[in-house]
Computed example of a mutant assay.
Amino acid sequence: MKMEISVKSYPSSGAINDRLEQAFLEGMIKYAMPAGTVGLGSASGESAFQSYLHREYAKVLGSRLELGFEK
């Protein structure tokens, strides 16, 4: 009988820290820029895409700021 063992690869600690920083910043951006303050032009479009915009803002800020989560 032959058994195959698959080993899952987990992300590196650096990738986990980057994602943690991004999630933290995304939460802060949601608090700092509540619904209706982004100014995309329409209420329905703004509410639909605001989470994506917050995520991209957090990704950019996370790449430029060092919050010290790796310590």
Rank of each mutant, 00 (worst) to 15 (best):
Y52H: 12
A35D: 15
S13M: 12
T37Y: 09
I29M: 00
S42V: 12
F69L: 15
R55K: 14
P11G: 01
L65H: 04
K2C: 07
A35R: 14
L25A: 02
G39Q: 10
P34S: 13
A35S: 15
L67V: 09
S13A: 14
L65A: 08
P11W: 03
M3E: 11
T37R: 12
S6W: 08
Y52C: 05
S9I: 04
M1K: 06
E66S: 09
H54I: 00
K8N: 13
T37A: 12
D18Y: 03
K59G: 03
A48Y: 14
M33T: 12
T37V: 12
F24V: 04
K59N: 00
K8C: 07
H54E: 06
L53M: 06
G14N: 13
Q22S: 06
F69K: 06
K8V: 14
N17P: 00
R55N: 05
G27F: 02
I16F: 11
V7D: 07
P11H: 06
I5A: 06
T37G: 09
M3V: 07
S63L: 11
A48M: 14
L40Q: 05
A35H: 14
Y10P: 02
D18P: 01
M33I: 11
A23L: 14
G68I: 06
Q22G: 03
R64S: 14
A15Q: 12
G39R: 08
M28G: 02
S42L: 08
E56D: 10
R64Y: 13
S51H: 10
Y52E: 04
I5G: 05
S13I: 05
G62V: 05
L53C: 03
S13K: 09
Y57L: 04
K71N: 10
K59A: 04
S42H: 12
A32E: 10
M1I: 04
M33Y: 07
L65V: 15
Y57M: 10
G45K: 10
L65E: 00
S51F: 09
G68Y: 03
I16L: 13
F49A: 14
S51M: 05
